[in-house]
């Protein structure tokens, strides 16, 4: 039987889920699954790629890495997987999903604090670039503040990409925990950032983006699960 290229690829993958490419970003035509990539992957990793490997590969086609002509080098993949492991499936699976009623409740409070002066942000978020109290909706001495899908960022930090990634990490945490987010956060210790799990994630994400400006934004990760690197 002569199979098409696509069919060969689909059979090579140990999952029954169809391969899904994102059509809304990057290239207008998603790259055709490439048997050479599968062969290279097998040679490098000693196993068949799964659907998550394919999605990660597609991401590397949408955003340049640090190698010649924007190739992703081995160390780029290591940084990327560090980010993925740090966020974990619980948060990554919330990308592209707005969250439940609990998240909506907190988003509403954030919108109120921003006096509804919100701009559309990535992945269903809304961002207010504001000033500190009393001129704006952000508490004194504060740079960023997240309420559900609403992010308030100090106007002077508009270009601060690592800070946005930190706040977006909180968005994913809200989506995961729902109405229980704030009580759980407080249980972790407000000023105890050495141990508060929500801030531990946030500051590490921020540091990764500070040192690796080439990394695609978190919301571009297509998570289908099953990372097995």
């Amino acid at each position: 039987m002569i199979a098409t290229r696509n069919r060969v690829i689909f059979r090579a993958l140990p999952t029954s889920k169809p391969l899904v490419a994102r059509h809304d970003v990057g290239v207008s035509q998603p790259p055709t699954p490439d048997p050479d990539w599968v062969a290279d992957f097998r040679a490098t990793h000693g196993r068949d790629p799964n659907e998550q490997d394919w999605q990660d590969y597609l991401l590397s086609l949408r955003y340049p890495g640090t190698g010649p002509n924007g190739e992703w080098l081995e160390r780029d993949w290591q940084v990327y997987y560090r980010l993925v492991d740090l966020l974990g499936g619980d948060l990554l699976s919330r990308i592209g999903k707005p969250g439940g009623h609990g998240t909506g409740f907190y988003s509403g409070i954030g919108a109120f604090l921003a006096l509804w002066k919100l701009e559309p942000g990535p992945d269903g978020t809304r961002i207010a670039y504001a000033r500190n109290f009393p001129a704006g909706g952000i508490p004194p001495n504060t740079t960023g503040w997240t309420w559900g899908n609403t992010i308030l960022i100090l106007e002077s930090e508009r270009n601060n990409r690592p800070l946005l990634m930190h706040e977006y990490t909180h968005v994913l945490q809200y989506r995961y925990k729902g109405i229980g987010y704030v009580p759980n956060y407080l249980k972790g210790g407000v000023y105890n950032w050495d141990n508060n799990p929500y801030e531990m994630q946030g500051v590490e994400v921020q540091q990764i983006y500070e040192w690796n400006p080439w990394l695609p934004p978190i919301w571009e990760i297509v998570w289908v699960g099953g990372r097995s690197q």
Partner: peptide
Amino acid sequence: LVIAAGILAACDTN
């Protein structure tokens, strides 16, 4: 109370 709790949560300074 919700806003007061929220002031303490996910409230970050650079």
